[in-house]
Design a binder for these strands. Structure first.
Lengths: 243, 243
DNA sequence: TCGAAAGTGTCAGCACGATGACAGAATTGG
DNA sequence: CCAATTCTGTCATCGTGCTGACACTTTCGA
């Protein structure tokens, strides 16, 4: 981080405790936890597992705008998105910041369950959605009775958390431009990153103006195009050279 | 990170590829992987498990200076230190850097096994040591046949990787002084951190001179005392205020 | 349809940490 | 015990990113 990261001494410490930073820190932590969602090859359950477990999994339909689970929930269980998109966000009311978007096949909640931590974010259906739910006791009996699934879940958790850790480590010691380029490449879904600059800045632990400066540079170079709450990657190869 | 992190442009990119940085990056990654060793409450096997598995675990004695496993080994298996201290290091010959020290009860190798990655560091007995070894196939059959142990291993892996990730996230956006203070507090065993400044700098992704400057400041304030390859914490409370 | 709130764009000054280089001190192996 | 090597200590210069502030734009709810 830059020298300017903090005002040094008592004043800086005081400002830091007033929540301005603690908010960012919580946002950062929640966002990176959300990066550990099981997706694609990293998911603990294969499609055939999901169908085989039809009896154990409880299906729930969530209409657009409905909350699926809420920040602070303890032992919320495992959530599997079957259809639609589900937004993960933090903060109440208007101050909420969207951290991530779950898509069909994504699995969430297992890591929080294993760590005994409350859900750090709220999930809300962006579109009419269909999700499957595995309760905490259901999860326990599943891993106790089905060694094959337990084994796969073990690998899945390890891979997801390790991948996330490696991503963060890959940012340390890099220039902000490199950090941003990597983050965009990793986050892009169909060449779009639907995060506000505030959220991205929090994830990287930098100030928003610093991030904005870099983004405008990248845009001026024709690598990305910026609009409200979304960044479009127009030249992945060019971005990759920067990271 | 600071602007100075990289020379910008082609020259910096070129320098970066020549290995000067790649060495530090590998050191950093290996060091943080080593931070995921199972220790104390985070260990996957309880002492009673270890005794119960006496038949499955192969005991090996390593005299002082002997290698236990070597960097690059694939499917090396799970290693449990029973007695003595085992040093984890990186780099061949004289250029090696010590990144961690295993102590009795520590469990290593399981994460690498689950990720299908080669051991990123070499283990060498610092003292005459006694270690237990569980081969890769042995591990597989263990988790397949013993659901209770598999379940505990699942929590253990999740907790260790998540704790490490949280540690790293806690560093982002903090001033170097804060980063150093936290790292020292987390790494200290009996108020001593036995790492070279080069290794610590690599873990934080900063330059060694920058780290040295901060360390000397902390020493001048009476919080730590610096000697060759070890830093002693003389005022934990004071350090905690800085973090 | 309007207004409030959140998001984005921008700026000047400043301080921290990178860089690269060099010297002394403590180890370690031969 | 000496030589080679590593580790620590230190410096001047430079550039990045922080800070705090403000204007503009888009969105969304009332």
């Amino acid at each position: 981080m830059d020298g300017g990261v903090n005002p040094v001494g008592a004043v800086g410490q005081a400002l830091r405790r007033l929540g301005g930073d603690s908010t960012d820190a919580r946002l950062r932590q929640a966002a990176w936890v959300a990066r550990c969602v099981g997706r694609g090859d990293g998911a603990p359950l294969r499609p055939e597992d999901v169908t085989a477990l039809a009896g154990v999994l409880e299906q729930r339909d969530a209409s657009r705008g409905t909350a699926v689970f809420t920040a602070g929930e303890q032992r919320s269980g495992v959530w599997i998105v079957r259809e639609g998109r589900v937004e993960l966000s933090l903060g109440s009311g208007r101050r909420r910041a969207v951290i991530h978007v779950l898509r069909p096949g994504d699995v969430d909640g297992d890591i929080e369950l294993l760590l005994g931590m409350p859900m750090p974010y709220t999930a809300r259906a962006l579109t009419d959605a269909s999700v499957l739910h595995l309760s905490a006791p259901g999860f326990e009996s599943l891993v106790q009775t089905n060694p094959a699934i337990a084994r796969r879940w073990l690998s899945s958790v390890a891979r997801r958390l390790a991948a996330s850790q490696e991503r963060i480590l890959g940012l340390l010691g890099k220039s902000l431009t490199e950090q941003v380029a990597r983050l965009l490449l990793d986050e892009a879904v169909e060449n779009r990153v639907e995060l506000t600059q505030r959220t991205i800045a929090a994830m990287l632990g930098v100030q928003r103006p610093s991030l904005n400066k870099v983004l405008k540079q990248l845009e001026a170079n024709g690598l990305i195009s910026i609009s409200y709450g979304t960044i479009e990657l127009t030249d992945r190869a060019g971005l990759a050279k920067r990271g």
